[in-house]
Amino acid sequence: MADNKTSQPAALTPALRPLSPHLQIYRWQLTSVMSILHRASGIALSAGGVLLVWWLVAAASVPEAYNAVQNFLGSWLGVLLLLGWSAALFYHLCNGIRHLVWDTGHALDLRSTYVGGWAVVGASTVLTAIAWVAGIWHWVG
């Protein structure tokens, strides 16, 4: 208020407070990115649920229907989607546990949110890698 250049009353001059973040100039942080990814992975997993039901209904249906799903899942697009969905599942699972811990009122300080955040990134990456190594191992062997 002291260095107002105009003679307007203080109530009419815009206060020099920080504005709400503009996405273009927003400095990304682990915590906000993980929050957005939790939502995005949840939406992706909902779409994955459609595939699960398609697969189960096809298995209960005629062989042609089941083979159509298996052929799609074996294509490069199918494998890519499965890779994405498995990563989304492990991420949403690990970060969901982080959210459940928060719901008990624990680990809400800044340091814990970062330690937990990196733990979730590491755990979901390792679990996805283990699942794919095991899956390929089982497929080959």
Partner: peptide
């Protein structure tokens, strides 16, 4: 609808 479709498929098997 998806949940029911999936459950019916599993139960039918």
């Amino acid at each position: 609808a998806l949940a029911i479709a999936g459950i019916v498929a599993v139960l039918s098997l």
